[in-house]
């Protein structure tokens, strides 16, 4: 499956690329996976509440954070350097997956990637996302339009987690966030993780479920 890592790209440009890819995939083009890093951005999904962003405009300017509303599911989250944002643009019909099963496929791919670095994901009934014990390491927020997915997941690799202090991540009070860097002694490069998660997702999303 065509997987492209675009590197550090503004959120707006990322959305433009994503929308164009979505248009061509939903029109019959081949499914693709897009991977980005974004500069500091807080995004609100359809269930996002502005009051889940806790800091005032002065601090937002000082910390150089962009704020964006999006059309994905989920609430508020942070994107920033050191975090991989992965947007699989997939025709769900081809895979015969319903949206819940698709979200599970994303979780499984992330869990597989983490286990390659000896990080064990919490398999219990946690709120959507990927958790290490009670610390959230990856967020998931998806949109399905014309039976084709957009948005996807955000995985903390070497993210500056302090930016999560100023929001209520995914609307969960007292949510502790973590990253691959925090959970392992031998931190891989972000490029390595991009290749790993891209590969795992590519395999999982290549063939229809029998």
């Amino acid at each position: 499956m065509l997987t492209t890592y675009h590197g550090l790209v503004s959120y707006d440009i990322g959305q433009t690329i994503q929308q164009e890819t979505h248009s061509s995939v939903s029109a019959g083009g081949k499914d693709e996976i897009l991977i980005f890093q974004h500069p500091n951005t807080y995004t609100l999904g359809r269930m996002g509440k502005p009051e889940d962003i806790l800091i005032n405009n002065e601090d937002i300017k000082r910390l150089d954070i962009e704020i964006r509303n999006t059309d994905r599911g989920g609430e508020v989250t942070y994107h920033g350097p050191g975090q991989l944002v992965v947007y699989p643009i997939i025709k769900l019909d081809r895979l015969k997956l319903n949206p819940s099963e698709y979200v599970n496929t994303l979780k499984t791919a992330i869990t597989g990637c983490l286990s390659d670095y000896n990080i064990v994901a919490n398999e219990n009934d946690m709120p959507t996302g990927v958790w290490v014990e009670n610390r959230k390491i990856a967020a998931i927020g998806v949109r399905v339009s014309k039976k084709t997915t957009s948005h996807g997941l955000a995985l903390n690799v070497t993210t500056d987690l302090s930016y999560f202090d100023h929001i209520i991540p995914c609307g969960i009070q007292n949510c502790v966030v973590t990253s691959i860097e925090k959970e392992t002694s031998n931190t891989p490069t972000i490029e390595e993780i991009a290749e790993n998660i891209g590969g795992k997702l590519g395999n999982a999303l290549e063939n229809p479920v029998t």
């Binding site: 599911g73 959507t128 927020g141 949109r143 399905v144």
Partner: peptide, 16 residues
């Protein structure tokens, strides 16, 4: 035609 958005856990889906 996309008719309405339906939001389930973490997924915002357009219903045709």
């Amino acid at each position: 035609d996309p008719l309405v958005e339906v939001i389930t856990d973490k997924v915002n889906m357009e219903l045709p």
